[in-house]
Design a protein around this nucleic acid. Structure first.
Lengths: 146, 146
DNA sequence: CAGCATCCCGCTGGATACTG
DNA sequence: CAGTATCCAGCGGGATGCTG
């Protein structure tokens, strides 16, 4: 994510200075959020987790299941990141042709609950969001008279 | 759930573990997830929501509170998007100097719970994630011996 | 089948300067 | 103070081709 080439205000400085944070008292909370969002933020991680929530999958099958068609490249990258973070376990069978199975770890499964909540919230509020967008667009359209 | 004709999948794991199985057979479900993740995916939305969770804030104050120093541009964009989606309410007071207040809508507040959960999960699992990364890095390092 | 390497485009997002 | 407008670097991510 952040390349960190700008050093106007380092997060460390803010933390060290004991800046007022959210309703949570510890400043680490935000770092934590960022950690999760960095994982969940990228386009495909959640979908992989979602698909793996139902069971073990091989690479191709995993790719096939993800609607919208994730590219091979992105699936590899995504799955590798998740593996690195200990959310996904990757098992290689040295057969011919090669077979690689992906499954969620315990930690990965625990994330499933949150993803589910996210999905539920999203589904529940989608109509409201759509409506809000239409309202907003209509209002700004009449607002900006050319 | 479908499947059952291939031996690849093993949904038993999820079932046995009592995991909430997420069904993504309908494309709408995924669109829903994508909708939320598109909002949460961008770098700053969550932080804005987090900061606004504690109360009404003006532009500058909001910018000041966000760690890492969000640029005016990004704060504007982020806050506009959130407003468009009906998560944030923007109130303009035509005074001099101008004063604009931001606050979460009801829907925005409902998202706060999820963000909170995300933060909690993140904080709880950060050590595990760090450990996993170290393990992974060490393993791959010795794996790729030149 | 699984996955690495390469090219390349578009969007995100930072810095800067200018208005109301 | 609260933006808008512009320029530009970086990387996310698609398409393609090559290995084991």
């Amino acid at each position: 994510m952040s390349a960190g080439h700008t050093a106007i205000t380092t997060p460390q400085a803010a933390v060290a200075a004991g800046e007022p944070v959210i309703q949570c008292e510890t400043p680490q909370d935000e770092c934590g959020v960022r950690d999760v969002l960095d994982r969940l933020g990228d386009k495909w991680s959640v979908y992989v987790v979602v698909e793996l929530a139902s069971g073990v999958l091989r690479f191709k099958e995993l790719q096939r299941r993800i609607h919208g068609g994730i590219s091979q490249r992105m699936l590899t990258l995504t799955v590798r990141r998740l593996e690195r973070d200990g959310l996904v376990k990757r098992t290689v069978y040295p057969t011919i042709p090669p077979q690689v199975e992906y499954e969620l770890t315990e930690m990965g499964h625990s994330l499933t609950h949150l993803v589910k909540s996210l999905a539920d919230w999203s589904i529940a509020h989608r109509p409201a969001i759509s409506a809000a967008r239409e309202t907003y667009d209509a209002r700004t359209a009449e607002d900006v008279r050319p």
